[in-house]
């Protein structure tokens, strides 16, 4: 065969030698029937379960973000005097809580795709038949569960430390927490995938994420302040619930559809 000219000619590798099959140890060469195609959500759940399992084994991100949110609560107590009866803690509570949640959440989000880097696991996931959207959704679901767990514990700690009553509007409070946490998770997970191969990964993620989260966080802060103050969701703050719903839906769709740009090079 001649040396290829510039630009490359076509080559064919045909037939040829078969390596001598080596004697097999007593094995069961019988292979599974037909591999089926697991559904999109099944794949996502498989990934989520994997992430949760390995996080729960080490609890690295979980412990760190819990400790971090408690530290933030502690620091806030120096920003104003919680014992001063003239100060109505309910006026700050929303902002205080969501600042702590958003900062603590970033710790989990940073770990999310970084975990895949260690042994080039991300390559194996992307090469698998699972669609990139399902990989994203799975990782987002795992982050969602982790961040939500941290939030629920922190909320309890917050209620005790700052003597805030969470019971009156607990139902709506949970709804707001679920929606906002999903917003944090979708943006955070997408940007975690975006920054995973960059130098300064840990710096890039918060720089990109926080300005993006201003609409949902603003909505959450207003709603949470209202709810902790005992004010129910009514016509005048319903608009913020709508902002959260719209944000969640639109960015979830965008992320699932466009994530393969980021994951498949």
């Amino acid at each position: 065969m001649a040396k290829a000219e510039r630009g490359g000619a076509g080559f064919s590798l045909q037939g040829g030698l078969q390596p001598t099959p080596q004697p097999m140890p007593a094995l069961n060469p019988q292979l599974p029937a037909e591999p089926h195609s697991p559904s999109f959500f099944r794949q996502a759940l498989t990934i989520a379960a994997k992430d949760l399992r390995s996080e729960l084994r080490t609890k690295e991100a979980l412990n760190a973000s819990l400790a971090f949110s408690v530290v933030i609560f502690l620091l806030f107590s120096f920003a104003f005097d919680p014992g001063n009866l003239d100060i109505d803690i309910n006026e700050f509570s929303g902002g205080l809580l969501w600042l702590a949640f958003a900062f603590a959440g970033a710790l989990s989000l940073n770990r999310s795709f970084a975990r895949e880097l260690q042994n080039d696991c991300l390559d194996a996931l992307v090469a698998s038949p699972a669609p990139p959207g399902a990989l994203f959704l799975g990782k987002a679901l795992a982050n969602f569960a982790l961040i939500l767990a941290v939030e629920i514990i922190s909320l309890g700690v917050f209620a005790v430390m700052y003597n805030v009553h969470i019971q009156p509007q607990l139902g709506w409070l949970i709804v707001v927490m679920l929606m906002t946490t999903w917003a944090i998770t979708v943006i955070g997970t997408a940007f975690s995938a975006l920054t995973v191969n960059l130098r300064m990964r840990e710096l890039m993620l918060p720089i990109l994420t926080y300005p993006f989260l201003i609409p949902p966080l603003m909505a959450a802060i207003l709603l949470t302040t209202d709810l902790l103050g005992g004010k129910p969701i009514s016509a005048d703050n319903m608009i913020w619930v709508r902002v959260l719903v719209a944000f969640d839906v639109i960015f979830s769709l965008l992320a699932v559809v466009f994530i393969d740009i980021v994951l498949v090079g």
């Binding site: 591999p35 195609s37 994997k50 390995s54 975990r115 042994n119 080039d120 390559d123 698998s128």
Partner: peptide, 28 residues
């Protein structure tokens, strides 16, 4: 595909790692 890395999760057991990929590939 076998790349440069081993593509296994350190925090999972051998069996769990294989099960994960078995499920992703939709093995019966």
């Amino acid at each position: 595909v076998l790349g440069h890395g081993i593509s296994l999760y350190d925090e999972l057991s051998a069996n769990e790692n294989l099960l994960l990929f078995g499920r992703l590939y939709g093995l019966p």
